[in-house]
């Protein structure tokens, strides 16, 4: 129920931002579409802590801050590789790492972050073993050392039970 209300509020805000209208008729149309979307989501049974993780929003914001820095750094590394005239700067390799996220949500966040960072793409996830493709030794370094793994908020699994 908590998640349904939170999702409803989010949808109202979204509708208002996207339309920018405040007339009664349009407002009621918006309300109808919000209720319809909630009903659809309920019917699909997708409203839960995973699709709508309100419990960790603030920790995630801090995590995103660090992720942005990672992304910028690795972007510059990949650009350097593209622009380098010699082709031997590319050393593609696959990395198989063990990840330490106990919950499915934590695994998803980690794998998505690794993919989002240019220079590393998560290819396959099997239980706690993640297969990562890295462009060079340099870009693969952060994954090899498990830096992102340690950065994912630790309270992800608490509510997942």
């Amino acid at each position: 129920m908590k998640h349904t209300i939170s999702l409803g509020l989010l949808l109202c805000l979204l509708w208002w931002i996207l339309s920018g209208f405040a007339k009664p008729l349009l407002f009621s149309l918006g309300a109808i579409s919000v209720v319809f979307t909630l009903w659809l989501a309920h019917r699909m049974d997708v409203i839960d802590h995973e699709s709508h993780p309100i419990h960790l929003s603030w920790r995630l914001v801090a995590y995103w801050g660090r992720l942005v820095r990672e992304i910028v750094v690795s972007n510059l590394q990949v650009l350097g590789v593209i622009l380098s005239p010699r082709s031997n700067k590319i050393e593609p390799h696959f990395l198989e790492v063990r990840i330490h996220q106990p919950s499915a949500l934590g695994k998803v966040i980690l794998a998505n972050s690794i993919t989002l960072t240019p220079g590393t793409v998560s290819v396959d996830l099997d239980d706690d073993r993640l297969l990562v493709h890295a462009l060079t030794r340099e870009t693969g370094q952060a994954v090899r050392e498990g830096q992102l793994d340690a950065m994912v908020p630790g309270d992800v699994e608490e509510v997942a039970a």
Partner: peptide, 20 residues
């Protein structure tokens, strides 16, 4: 598969500094 790529196992490289 990528012919030039090797598969490296970084199993026991590092796990210090974990949040929990």
């Amino acid at each position: 598969r990528e012919p030039a790529a090797t598969i490296e196992n970084a199993e026991d490289s590092k796990s210090a500094g974990e949040p929990r």
